[in-house]
């Protein structure tokens, strides 16, 4: 299986060349185009119950599609918003993805949904998050550019900008400054992360786009 992320960073999309026996799993509606030699099989993402939880609380699709072929073919996967896509190879480790970030993975990767906790809800990051573990490649996307950072001490991220984090990262909610500046500076609540581990951030937030658009509607 040959893969390539094209049109980085503004309109990233994944081009995958599948050979006989190759399989790739992608979020529903991720397929832009493909050779007709490729078959699609639709399945519950991570089992029925988890799929339902994921749909209801993580605002993700109930289903994932598995693409495979008996001969060979090309597949283009994309995300709904413009932005970058990152590929990560899992070696038995785990990564938490924010709702909407997951795009595709190899079949050896386990997909699960986890309760992210009240603190993530307060940070407007969603009550649930996707958990990817096992071995193999995972592709996830973001609105805007993706940048990563190895965290050893404390680090502050604006809410809505966190895309993915490792389980070894502790996440707490804090105020950007004092009560006054937190509420009036427009920064509001921020997410404080503590290492060790890696986080992935996006350079724009979809909530930010919606707020900007709303304030310019007439």
């Amino acid at each position: 299986m040959e893969t390539e992320i094209r049109n980085k960073p503004s309109f990233a999309n994944i081009r995958i060349k599948l050979g006989p026996g190759d399989r790739v799993i992608a979020e529903a509606d991720a397929m832009a185009s493909m050779s007709s030699t490729i078959d699609i099989k639709t399945m519950w993402s991570g089992g029925f119950l988890r799929a339902v939880l994921k749909r209801v609380f993580g605002s993700e699709s109930l289903f994932v599609n598995e693409f495979s072929t008996e001969s060979e073919g090309e597949l283009i996967l994309t995300q709904p918003f413009p932005g970058d896509i990152e590929c990560l190879e899992l070696k038995g480790n785990t990564l938490y993805l924010q709702p909407g970030a997951f795009l595709a993975c190899e079949p050896t990767v386990r997909l699960g949904v986890g309760w992210a906790g009240l603190r993530m809800l307060i940070a407007r990051e969603g009550l649930f998050r996707l958990k990817v573990s096992g071995t193999g490649r995972v592709w996830f996307g973001a609105y805007g550019g993706i940048f990563q950072r190895e965290i050893s001490d404390e680090y502050v991220v604006d809410s809505g900008h966190l895309v993915a984090y490792e389980p070894s990262i502790n996440v707490r909610i804090g105020m950007a400054g004092g009560i006054f500046s937190s509420f009036f500076s427009g920064e509001g609540l921020v997410t404080k992360v503590t290492g060790p581990g890696r986080i992935y951030m996006q350079s724009r937030s979809f909530g930010g786009l919606a707020a900007w658009t709303n304030s310019h509607l007439w």
Partner: peptide, 26 residues
């Protein structure tokens, strides 16, 4: 059923020979 549940729904199928231009986003 799978087509709809899988979020892909109906798709366009092209056949023959010629050039097709696609856009990366929907």
């Amino acid at each position: 059923v799978g087509s709809f549940l899988g979020g892909e729904g109906l798709v366009c199928k092209f056949s023959g020979q010629g050039r097709l231009y696609c856009q990366s986003h929907n």
